[in-house]
């Protein structure tokens, strides 16, 4: 079958999609967007988290055909989505301790992406795309989350490397910078 959808703001079309394929397979193998990850493919790990019409979903549990005519945001689209917003000055006391990102990187990153780098929340990085999409959605909904709010919002995203502590730091940092940027 043919599937038409909008991914990261761009219209996409895929042909010869088998009816049993997931949105995750469509993104990764047919549209060249491997950012959403395939750690469990049964909705347990959150590494394939994308937003479908704004709602965070496990792309592995969405049939490709269900995405017909809908809008998908993946980790590859996060930076561009935030590009219209002002940068991320580090004025907050908490934020001031963190390092700037490396000078040699290219396009500006979304605040959560930058915060994950600065806080040391990335190790192997396989969970990172899903966590970034989920954390970005949290901060959009709740700009000043409590620690318990952060843990609740990210409880569907497994990470095996970090013990989550620096992920907590990263989300707190992104929230602080975001509120500072007003």
């Amino acid at each position: 079958m043919r599937v038409n959808l909008v991914v990261n703001g761009r219209r996409q079309e895929a042909d010869d999609v088998w009816e049993g394929e997931s949105l995750l397979f469509l993104l990764r193998e047919r549209l060249g967007l491997p950012g959403a990850k395939n750690a469990c493919e049964q909705g347990e790990c959150g590494s394939c988290t994308v937003r479908l019409d704004g709602v965070p979903v496990c792309a592995c549990l969405v049939a490709a055909g269900q995405a017909e005519g809908r809008e998908v945001l993946t980790v590859e689209g996060l930076a561009a989505r935030h590009a219209g917003t002002p940068g991320a000055p580090t004025g907050a006391e908490e934020a001031a301790r963190w390092r700037a990102r490396p000078a040699d990187s290219a396009a500006p990153l979304a605040p959560v992406q930058q915060a994950f780098l600065d806080a040391g929340a990335v190790q192997c990085g396989f969970c990172t795309p899903g966590l970034l999409v989920a954390a970005d959605e949290l901060l959009e909904r709740e700009p000043s989350p409590s620690d318990a709010d952060i843990r609740e919002a990210l409880s569907g995203n497994l990470c095996r490397c970090t013990g989550y502590e620096k992920i907590m730091d990263a989300v707190r940092l992104a929230a602080a910078r975001q509120s500072e940027a007003g």
Partner: peptide
């Protein structure tokens, strides 16, 4: 606490894991 050289690629989704090979 120098930054990871692969960090930016890992937060943008561009870092090529073994399952991303094509």
């Amino acid at each position: 606490s120098a930054p990871r050289p692969d960090g930016t690629l890992k937060v943008t989704g561009e870092f090529a894991y073994s399952s991303d090979m094509w």
